[in-house]
Every structure is written in C-alpha cells, then in structure tokens.
C-alpha cells in the first residue's frame, strides 16, 4: 500500500516537473507581456500625467490622441513609411533572391553583402545614412563631383521628403533578410513541378509568373508579417536619422509614444497611443499565428 502511494507520489512529481521548468518563463511572459499590456491599456483610460493615477476618464485620452496634430502626422507617416517599406523591401528582396538563385558564381559572397546590414543596429544605420544623405558633404557632393553640377538632394532637411530617407535606410537594412526568406522559399519548391512545366513547353518567364511566384505565397505572407512588424515597431531608426524632424515631420507612432510619455509627461495619452499600436499589430499578427499553428496541427 505504502509502496504504491510512494509510486503515485513519484509519478505526480514527474508530471509536475515539466510545468515547473516552464514556470519561470510563464511567469515572465504572463507579467511582462500580458500583465503589462493590461496595465498600459488601463492607464490609457486614466488621466495619468507623470505618474500613474487611477482616475478614470473614459475615452478622453483617445479623443485627445486623435485630435492631436502630431499624432495625425505620425499616422500619416506610418502609412507612407510602412507601405513603401513593405512594398520596396518585398520587391527588392524577391528580385535579389531570383537573381541569386540562377546558380551564379560566388553566391555566398553576394548573400553576405546583401545581408550584412541586418547585423547592424538601427542606430548605426541611422548614423551612416545621416552621413550619406547630409546635404553638404554627402550624396549631393558625390553626384556633383561626377559632373552633374546642379544635382540637389536635401531630403533629410526637407519636411516634405524627410520621411522618404527613413524608407531608404530601412529598406537598405531589411532587403537582405527578405531575400533570405525568398531564397529559402525558392529552394524549397519541388523541382519536379518545374521539370513538368518545362516538359509542357512553358517559357522561363511564364514558369516564374505562373508557377514559382504563386508557390511562394506563404513566403510573401511571412515577409509581410515580418516587415509590418518591423515598420510599426520602428523607433531607433527615426531617432538616429532624423530625431523625428525636421520639426515633427518624421514623427512615427513609436516616437510619438516615447516623447509624449517620457518627455512631455502625458502618460495617459502615451498609453493610449501604445494601445492603438498594439491593436494594429495584433490585427496583423493574431490571424497569422492562428493560421500557422492550425497549419501545423494538421501537418
């Protein structure tokens, strides 16, 4: 009797061990992700300024947020920046992947060259491009030196154009990573399908447009999710490249949230902007995660 009890006890312990091992991570994720998320959402319904004060003000902060001109610029910019960033990085990444997939010499060297920007901090990228695009000594002088005397390139200090410099630097940094995603996708295509298409007499460009690119659909989805996620989170790049300026011409939701909360001590308003960011990202990520996990369970 005692022996079986001991055995049962041992068994219970053995069953509890895996959960015990998970528990530190579970604790961190429960508090650090979900608890904090909830905390911020709650704060967004309060009138907190420099410190959290749980005086609820309903949707006041959201009303203030959407009538704030800086937030308006930030939203407009995230659409310009995010849209261009996603489209350009995808096109460039796919193009580079297709080129690299032509069984070229020195494939490894090319891959390394396209990918190294991914290893850099956004701050480093921002500092580099601040130098490259500076109106006095940068690209402008280089092109003028090549003989195009009247060439002018002052986007970095032009409120209308500054956001596009962020796009350029961002695409330069991420394109290689997108290329790697597409390259992996290309290498995963069943080559017998390509042979079959060839036997059916399809010319090369048709094979790309009709078979290969449609087969890369899941990679497009992955690339989109990764790019959208990076775009919405982008903070460092803007800080290092333009500091949100000139004026607040390159304000993004992420920089808005930071300055509002920590510089201008409008915590409730900052929390409201963070909540809007979270909702936007969740709308993209949750369906993606759901389909990924469901896909896996079927497989």
């Amino acid at each position: 009797m005692a022996a079986t009890e001991r055995m049962a006890g041992k068994r219970r312990l053995a069953n509890a061990l895996p959960l015990f091992v998970l528990s530190p991570s579970l604790l961190m994720v429960t508090i650090g992700v979900y608890g904090f998320m909830l905390f911020s959402v709650i704060l967004s319904f309060t009138g907190s300024k420099m410190f959290p004060r749980f005086v609820f003000t309903g949707f006041d902060q959201y009303e203030r947020l959407f009538s704030n001109p800086r937030w308006g610029v930030a939203v407009q910019n995230i659409f310009i920046f995010g849209g261009l960033y996603i489209v350009l990085a995808t096109i460039l990444g796919l193009g580079l992947a297709i080129l690299i997939d032509q069984r070229i010499r020195a494939e490894g060297a090319f891959r390394t060259i396209f990918l190294y920007p991914m290893a850099l901090s956004f701050i480093v990228t921002g500092v580099i491009w601040q130098w490259l695009l500076n109106p006095g000594l940068g690209l402008e002088r280089l092109v003028q030196g090549w003989g195009w005397e009247s060439f002018s390139f002052k986007w970095l200090v032009d409120p209308q154009m500054a956001i596009y410099t962020v796009v350029i630097a961002g695409v330069w940094q991420v394109a290689g990573f997108v290329m790697a995603l597409f390259l992996a996708g290309l290498r995963g295509i069943n080559t017998e399908i390509l042979s079959a298409a060839r036997m059916d007499g399809a010319p090369t460009h048709k094979i790309y447009t009709r078979i290969i690119i449609p087969a890369l659909r899941p990679v497009f989805l992955t690339a989109f999710v990764v790019e959208a996620h990076l775009a919405i989170k982008s903070y460092d790049l803007v800080v290092a490249l333009t500091k949100g300026g000139p004026g607040f011409a390159t304000e993004l939701p992420s920089t808005f949230m930071y300055t509002t909360t920590f510089t201008r001590n409008e915590m409730g308003l900052g929390a409201a902007s963070a909540t809007v960011m979270l909702m936007t990202l969740a709308a993209i990520i949750i369906p993606y995660l759901y389909s990924e996990l469901r896909h896996e369970r079927r497989g």
Binding site: S25, V29, G32, V33, Y34, G35, F36, M37, F39, S40, L43, P52, H229, I232, K233, Y235, P253, S254, M257, Y258, T261, M267, G270, A271, S273, A274, T275, M277, L278, L281, A282, I285, I286, L289, Y290, L293
Partner: peptide, 18 residues
C-alpha cells in the same frame, strides 16, 4: 501561441509598466 505573440508586441505597450 501565447508566448509567440510575445515576440511580436510593440514594446511601447510595456514601457510604462516596466
């Protein structure tokens, strides 16, 4: 899945409580 979502949150949402 709950943990994976943690990979993707915008960190702005946790700055204040953290």
């Amino acid at each position: 899945g709950a943990m994976m979502f943690g990979c993707f949150i915008p960190f702005q949402i946790v700055l204040i409580p953290m």
